[in-house]
C-alpha cells in the first residue's frame, strides 16, 4: 500500500475529449479526474464504451486526432503537462516514462518482424545513456524475456508472433512494456483475450513484476474480480467521467455510487445464489448525453437535482469519493 501523502506521479485534471462524427460531436470524456502515485496499483473499471481506453490513449497522446479532439484539461506527468509537450519531449515520456500493454497482443505485435527485432527496437530507442551495440541489445532482450518466464528465449528471439500462443504473445508484450523500465505501466485488459487459467498466470506475473520494480500501474478492466486481486485503489468510470474512487477493500466492502452497486450485484458468485437482474437501460448516446448526472436515466434513486446538475465529488470516507447527490450533506 502506498502512503496517501506520496506526491502524484500522474494527475489527470478535468480531461475532456470529443470525437467528430457525421452529425456532430460525441462528447465522450466529460471531465475525467484521477491521480496515480509512485508505486501505486490503480484499477479503472467500467462497462464497454465508457471511455476507459480513450482516457489512457489521451494520456499517451496516441488518440488519432482527428476524429478525436482534446477539448480541455491537463495530464500532468511528474508535474509536466503531457498535452502541451513538444514531440521531442513526448518521446522522453513514451516508453521511458509511461508504457502500455494493449488488450489484444496479436494486434499489438507486428506480424512481419521477429520478436527479437521488435523487442530490440524498443530497447534501442529507450536506452538512456549512449548507444547500445547489437550484442548488448540481444543480451537485454534475452534478459527481459526471461523475466516474464518465457521458456527458451534464444529461440523466441528468432520467432514470429504467429508462431507463439496467445499467452506467450501477451508475455512478450509485457516484456516489451517493461524493457524500457517505465515509471508508469498502463495495462488495458491484459487478460481479457486469454483463457482463464492463462489470464491467472499473466496477472500473477504482472503483479510480481510491478511490485518488484515499484512501478505504478493502471489496470483497465471490466472484470471486477481481477481488480480486487491486483489493485490498491479503484476508479469507477461511467459514460465518460469518474463516478467513484476508493481504496480497493473499501470499494468492495461498501460500494456507494448506484452504478457501482449495480455492477457489484451483477457479478455471478462462485458461492451460488442466482444471478441478479443487473442494471436496466444502456450506456447513453454520446451525441446527446443526458443532462446533469449521466447515469440519471438508469438510476433507481434519481432525484430532481440529478437531471439538472452534474454532481461534484463528495468525500464519504477516507480516500473514498462519490459523484452522487445521494451523499451530499
Amino acid at each position: 500500500m502506498v502512503r496517501m501523502d506520496t506526491p502524484p506521479l500522474l494527475e489527470v485534471r478535468d480531461l475532456q475529449v470529443h470525437f467528430k462524427v457525421f452529425g456532430g460531436h460525441l462528447k465522450v470524456l466529460d471531465g475525467v479526474n484521477m491521480i496515480v502515485r509512485a508505486g501505486e496499483k490503480v484499477g479503472l473499471v467500467g462497462e464497454s464504451g465508457c471511455g476507459k481506453t480513450t482516457t489512457m490513449k489521451a494520456i499517451l497522446r496516441i488518440l488519432p486526432q482527428p476524429p478525436a479532439k482534446i477539448v480541455g484539461g491537463q495530464v500532468l506527468f511528474r508535474g509536466q503537462d503531457v498535452l502541451r509537450m513538444r514531440p521531442d519531449e513526448l518521446r522522453q515520456i513514451r516508453g521511458r516514462g509511461i508504457s502500455m500493454i494493449f488488450q489484444d497482443p496479436t494486434a499489438a505485435l507486428n506480424p512481419v518482424f521477429t520478436i527479437g527485432q521488435q523487442l530490440g527496437d524498443v530497447i534501442r530507442y529507450s536506452h538512456r545513456n549512449g548507444r547500445l551495440d547489437a550484442r548488448q541489445i540481444q543480451l537485454k532482450a534475452l534478459q527481459s524475456l526471461k523475466e516474464v518466464a518465457l521458456a527458451d528465449p534464444e529461440r523466441l528471439l528468432h520467432s514470429y508472433p504467429i508462431q507463439l500462443s496467445g499467452g506467450m504473445r501477451q508475455r512478450v508484450c509485457i516484456a516489451m512494456a517493461l524493457a524500457t523500465q517505465p515509471e508508469l505501466l498502463i495495462a488495458d485488459e491484459p487478460g481479457t483475450s486469454l483463457d482463464v487459467t492463462i489470464q491467472d498466470q499473466i496477472l500473477r506475473l504482472l503483479h510480481n513484476l510491478v511490485v518488484e520494480r515499484n512501478t505504478s500501474i493502471i489496470l483497465i478492466t471490466h472484470t471486477l474480480g481481477v481488480v480486487r486481486e491486483v489493485t490498491d485503489r479503484v476508479y469507477v468510470m461511467y459514460a465518460g467521467s469518474i463516478v467513484e474512487s476508493a481504496p480497493t477493500k473499501t470499494l468492495f466492502a461498501n460500494p456507494m455510487f448506484p452504478y457501482t452497486r449495480g455492477l457489484m450485484q451483477s457479478v455471478p458468485r462462485l458461492s451460488g445464489g442466482g444471478v441478479a437482474e443487473g442494471i436496466p437501460g444502456r450506456i447513453p448516446n454520446y451525441l446527446h448525453p443526458p443532462s446533469g448526472c449521466r447515469f440519471h436515466p438508469r438510476c433507481p434513486h434519481v432525484m430532481e437535482i440529478c437531471r439538472r446538475e452534474k454532481p461534484p465529488m463528495f468525500t464519504v470516507g477516507e480516500e473514498h469519493y462519490v459523484a452522487c447527490y445521494l451523499y451530499a450533506c
Binding site: 487459467t197 492463462i198 489470464q199 491467472d200 498466470q201 496477472l203 480486487r228 468492495f252 458468485r269
Partner: peptide
Amino acid sequence: LLSSIPVVSEEEEALKPKRVQSRGEI
C-alpha cells in the same frame, strides 16, 4: 480452473482450491 477465477468476495475466495496454481500453456 477454479483456483484461477478472479472473484469479488472473501466468501468466494474460501471456496477456491488453494493447492493448484495455474501453470503451462494449453
